[in-house]
């Protein structure tokens, strides 16, 4: 069974005259244990997609099924019940802002467990046991987020999302705020997770940053998914002109960027 099934998702913002469409029939299926890279640039609707799946915005059309549960028509109370089960988690881009500065690392880690209804003592044990998996030391527990480095904070945020043993985690540019060494470390941690059967949706504006970790890549353009496929195929042999433009624009070390004429032709094609 798919852990996430999104079909024909439409999301609108604003009312009447200000109404504008953020998602137009976006569809995506995520299987257990796979890492899906969701690529989209500014205005593609990638954040809206995540927010809709998390129940933070209400879609105007389409179907979202999370872990077998159709959530399309869920009300607040049903959403809360689903979230408390901890099957669905989210990792923000900026770890400093996604951890409460007044709560210790321990309290931040415990929050989703306590919400899930796990007794405090057991939750504390679990939090302690979880830290090695994200390569953090137990002595960080009584500290505040401000006392940790950016890389440590992001690993705490990852741990916080994983501690409820979710089936699906959505990560919004989880490594773009980190420096090279921490970026590699977080990516390695995420890669290790694949074996545990967790499905990850890795959202990014940059194809390059998910190329190395995603099993499949989905390209979001103007509110719909224009291309999905194994990462290697999408990157090495893109089909949609926008994907071609993305691949051709991404800076690479070996000067593989497409020629300028090619990119301009693609752009003309997209604007037509």
């Amino acid at each position: 069974m798919s852990v996430l099934e999104v079909t024909g998702l439409d999301v609108h913002y604003g009312l009447r005259r200000h109404r504008r469409q953020a998602l137009a029939g976006a569809s995506l299926t995520v299987e257990p244990g796979e890492i899906v890279g969701l690529i989209g640039e500014t205005g593609s609707g990638k954040s809206t997609f995540a927010r809709a799946v998390l129940g933070l915005v209400r879609p105007s059309a389409g179907r979202i099924v999370v872990d077998g549960e159709d959530v399309s028509g869920h009300r607040d109370r049903q959403w809360r019940a689903l979230r408390r089960r901890g099957v669905l988690q989210y990792v923000f881009q900026d770890p400093l802002r996604s951890l409460d500065p007044d709560l210790t690392i321990a309290d931040s880690l415990l929050e989703p467990l306590l919400l899930k209804g796990i007794p405090r003592v057991e939750a504390v044990e679990r939090a302690r046991g979880y830290l090695p998996r994200v390569r953090l030391d137990e002595e960080l527990l009584p500290r505040l987020p401000g006392e940790l480095s950016g890389g440590q904070r992001q690993r705490v945020a990852v741990a916080r999302a994983l501690i409820t043993e979710p089936k699906l985690v959505i990560l919004d540019e989880p490594v773009s705020a980190l420096d090279a060494a921490n970026r590699v470390q977080v990516l390695e941690i995420l890669k290790d997770l694949r074996d545990t059967g967790i499905a990850l949706v890795f959202i990014s504006h940059d194809l390059g940053s998910v190329a190395g970790i995603a099993d499949r890549v989905a390209v979001l353009y103007q509110g719909s998914v224009v291309e999905v496929g194994p990462a290697r195929d999408v990157i090495a042999a893109p089909e949609h002109p926008y994907t071609k433009l993305l691949v051709g624009s991404a800076p690479t070390l070996r000067m593989a960027a497409a020629g300028r004429a090619e990119r301009e032709a693609l752009r003309a094609l997209l604007n037509a």
Partner: peptide
């Protein structure tokens, strides 16, 4: 790019090769 001497440069390059597009686009 091709003969990095410092370990840090190698880290930057290997990051692209392992986790970047370069993984799939080793054209030249």
């Amino acid at each position: 790019l091709y003969q990095p001497e410092h370990e840090y440069t190698r880290l930057l390059i290997s990051e692209h090769e392992q986790y970047g597009l370069d993984r799939f686009l080793a054209r030249e």
